[in-house]
């Protein structure tokens, strides 16, 4: 978002000077900073000294501070939390679990277990770690009953309502609603209106492509890209600023195949510019077509009980190499597959 020049931003920037600047088309901070000071002096007839002092203040105000690597590491140690997924296979490929301060993305076709994974992780965080979760549902896939079922199976000694009270749910079905929701969340985290936000450790957005996918087709391509980036930046800021783990899910779309053996291949939705948003990306692949009847060695009754095993592949991560593991969805959420 462009930052406008305002009177009083720094002591030297009075309203008269501002008027002179805006009359010459210097309206934003970036206009001022990117222009040569001497040129501004010549253009607006301002004293060179004043221009320099404004420039110095603006640069100082909008620049980042250099941080010592060791300090950063110590700070990271004090704020970082690794949220275990309760599934040892998944923990292993994710290097112990989902990290706070990062955006972790799960990508997969429909019925690959993305929503189940999200709900399972949510219950793990609220039940086992007793931290709070904000769950942003954009597909209508969230089910309170499923969440309660997982809780009952996994934490039989705990009261379901007390576990579920740690989850705040928000259903956003278009981009505007999602933006509003994230804005509100950011505001609440800043102001801390109640104790819920002080122990908020996980924000889930299931799924980003359901609301963002339409941004490319409804407007121009550039508009779509900038919308995507603004949401992506907001998610990253949320993770970094408040030391929260952000989990997002993304769908697959078909793309022209690069190999000759297949007609087409699947790739994550939202295009190349979105691939830079998440720090960790895990691709989920079911081993069978779920809407099909499969051949199997057993008689018909038990055949119908089969479920696809899901292959989880770490596609992007700063910590672990590209590796894969097997998962399956059970009554108690996500578990190790065989």
């Amino acid at each position: 978002m462009p930052i406008q020049l305002l009177a009083g931003m720094c002591p030297a920037l009075t309203s008269e000077i501002l008027m002179q600047l805006t009359s010459k088309g210097i309206k934003q901070v970036i206009d001022f900073v990117s222009m040569d000071p001497e040129k501004i002096t010549a253009l607006c007839g301002l004293p060179f000294k004043k221009v320099l002092s404004i420039r110095r203040v603006l640069l100082a105000q909008y620049s980042a501070f250099p941080v010592n690597g060791l300090d950063l590491y110590n700070e990271a140690l004090s704020t970082l939390a690794v949220l275990s997924t309760s599934c040892s296979n998944l923990d292993e490929i994710l290097d112990c679990g989902v990290y706070t301060g990062e955006v972790t993305e799960f990508v997969g076709v429909s019925v690959s277990g993305k929503t189940q994974l999200c709900q399972s992780l949510t219950i793990q965080v609220v039940g086992e770690l007793e931290q709070n979760v904000v769950y942003i549902d954009t597909t209508g896939g969230w089910s309170v009953k499923r969440a309660a079922d997982i809780t009952r199976t996994r934490f039989p000694q705990k009261q379901v309502s007390s576990v579920l009270s740690r989850i705040q749910l928000c259903q956003c079905y278009d981009i505007k609603e999602l933006q509003e929701c994230l804005e509100q969340l950011q505001k609440s985290l800043h102001n801390q209106p109640d104790c819920f936000y002080s122990s908020l450790k996980l924000v889930v957005v299931d799924s980003v492509s359901a609301v963002l996918g339409s941004s490319f087709v409804s407007g121009t391509y550039v508009e779509g890209c900038s919308l995507l980036q603004s949401i992506g930046r907001r998610l990253n800021a949320l993770a970094k600023d408040f030391a929260i783990a952000v989990i997002i899910t993304n769908d697959m779309v078909s793309a022209a195949s690069t190999t000759s053996t297949e007609f087409y291949s699947m790739k994550p939705a939202l295009g190349r510019c979105w691939t830079f948003v998440p720090s960790v990306r895990v691709v989920l692949e079911p081993d069978k077509e779920p809407c099909q009847l499969w051949e199997c060695k057993y008689a018909d009754k038990s055949c119908s009980l089969f479920e696809p095993t899901i292959k989880a592949i770490v596609d992007k991560s700063v910590r672990s190499p590209r590796q894969s593991t097997l998962l399956k969805i059970t009554n108690a959420g996500v578990a190790n597959g065989t």
Binding site: V134, Y135, V144, K145, A147, A148, V160, S161, S162, L164, S165, I167, Q168, L169, C170, C172, E177, E180, C181, Q184
Partner: peptide, 14 residues
């Protein structure tokens, strides 16, 4: 957009 507690929903849809 307003946030709802999942617990509230659990009771409501019961």
């Amino acid at each position: 957009m307003n946030f709802m507690s999942a617990n509230h929903l659990y009771g409501k849809h019961g």
